[in-house]
Simulated scan of single mutants.
Amino acid sequence: MLAPPVPVVADPFHTPEREELQATARRFVEDRVLPVADELDKVKGEIPRSLLDEMGGLGYFGITIPREDGGLGLGAFEYCMIAEELARGWMSVGSIIARAQGAGTGVDDPGRRAELLRRSAAGTWIGAIALSEPDAGSDLAAVATRAVREGDEFVITGRKRWIGNAKAADFLQVLVRTADPEPGERRSAGLATLVVEKERDSFPEGLTGSPIDKIGYHGFVTWDLEFDGVRVPAANLLGEQGFSDAQKWLNVARVHTAARAVGLARGAVEDCIVYLQQREQFEHPIADFQAVRFRLATMAARVEQARSFYQHVAHRLDQGEPCEREAAMVKLLATEMAAEVTGEGIQLHGGNGYTTEHRVERYWRDARLTTIFEGTSEIQQKIVADRLLPRSPLG
């Protein structure tokens, strides 16, 4: 007697619209992103402006911007889904879309805000986010860059570090300290966000920068910035809850990072499937050897697990849930998975994996960074643990 058939359960997140959106992104990556990445990553080149313009035409800079403002009017789910596809080609392409999505548009003037939203959606208002400093990375409450009010302007003085796309950007969104905390207040009190508008490929008066030479994450330049009396209109103050605003933004950013990590790991798995069937040893494709097959199977299973988790958290974000704990969990799980799976991909390529002749080394270099930015794995563990285990008064 046969066992009853296993019921087929439809993917609860699948819709025809999402399927079409994903298919378009996959074709774009295969036809346009991968050839550019293969050429430019080796020489630490930047994403060509022409490619950014194509992404703007596809709506990728306005995925979460309302349709009435020129965007696609979609949610965190679609934003992360497209980011996974783009990162499978080149992580920086999956990252650059986060520099738009309406960032830097929270000004009070409705007309100006509408203009910037349209520009953001079209990919002509792409920014850079300046949060970290030499002594304030994981500990953003320690931000020391100062903004002093002088009439209708703020004057910014200080130093920011790890600012990707800073020179090429149309604006910088800068976390600054406008006041010192009062006795008994949290250290994060007095932080605010200012938008520094600028010309592309240049810095405004009072701002200088030095490129940071990285081992990966090429496609845009990462900068160490020095603010020395940079003047910004007071109207460019986005809010005086800079720390809490940054924390809310980081929830989505961490799920976005999980999606990018899945894209990188998926790239390693897909490339290994091809390579293992082509590479022959002992008169057989190495895909015939059980040890290799089992290793690949485990890699693929871990990618699917992480994808399901980030989709679940993205869906909950779209339902209006804060998901701070879950965002930290999925960022931790997916990025550690990606670092390990891409490393396994190098191993399955053997000596060829340790060359720049195959993409798997690029996926590994970029995946290693995902465990660090948007909060290190250790910071994610702290966030999760603090919500599971409240500290005792003596802790």
Rank of each mutant, 00 (worst) to 15 (best):
1 M>R: 05
2 L>E: 11
6 V>W: 01
8 V>Q: 08
10 A>Q: 02
13 F>G: 00
15 T>A: 01
15 T>C: 00
18 R>G: 06
21 L>K: 08
23 A>C: 09
25 A>E: 11
27 R>S: 09
30 E>N: 04
34 L>H: 14
35 P>S: 15
37 A>P: 13
40 L>Y: 11
41 D>R: 08
49 R>I: 14
52 L>W: 12
65 I>P: 07
69 D>C: 12
70 G>T: 10
73 G>E: 03
75 G>N: 12
81 M>C: 08
94 G>N: 07
95 S>H: 12
96 I>R: 06
96 I>T: 09
101 Q>Y: 01
106 G>R: 08
107 V>W: 07
108 D>A: 14
108 D>M: 09
109 D>T: 00
110 P>C: 06
110 P>E: 05
110 P>V: 01
115 E>G: 09
116 L>W: 05
116 L>K: 10
116 L>G: 02
117 L>T: 07
117 L>S: 11
134 P>T: 03
135 D>W: 14
135 D>F: 15
136 A>V: 04
137 G>P: 00
139 D>G: 05
140 L>F: 13
141 A>S: 14
149 R>K: 15
150 E>P: 00
152 D>N: 01
152 D>T: 01
153 E>W: 00
153 E>A: 01
155 V>H: 01
157 T>E: 06
158 G>Q: 10
160 K>M: 09
165 N>E: 13
168 A>H: 04
169 A>S: 11
175 L>Q: 12
176 V>A: 06
177 R>G: 00
177 R>W: 11
178 T>C: 13
188 S>A: 10
197 E>I: 05
197 E>Y: 06
197 E>W: 01
212 I>W: 05
222 T>R: 00
223 W>I: 10
223 W>M: 13
235 A>I: 02
235 A>W: 00
243 F>R: 14
243 F>D: 03
246 A>M: 11
249 W>F: 15
254 R>W: 01
257 T>S: 07
268 A>T: 13
269 V>G: 10
269 V>M: 10
269 V>N: 05
275 Y>A: 07
278 Q>D: 03
280 E>T: 11
283 E>C: 04
285 P>A: 07
296 L>A: 13
297 A>K: 05
300 A>P: 04
300 A>G: 02
301 A>H: 03
310 Y>K: 02
319 Q>T: 11
323 C>F: 04
327 A>M: 05
329 M>V: 13
331 K>D: 14
338 A>Q: 06
339 A>M: 07
345 G>E: 00
356 T>I: 14
357 E>C: 09
358 H>P: 11
372 I>Y: 09
374 E>M: 02
375 G>I: 01
377 S>P: 02
378 E>D: 09
381 Q>L: 12
383 I>T: 03
385 A>E: 10
386 D>E: 10
387 R>T: 00
390 P>R: 04
390 P>F: 11
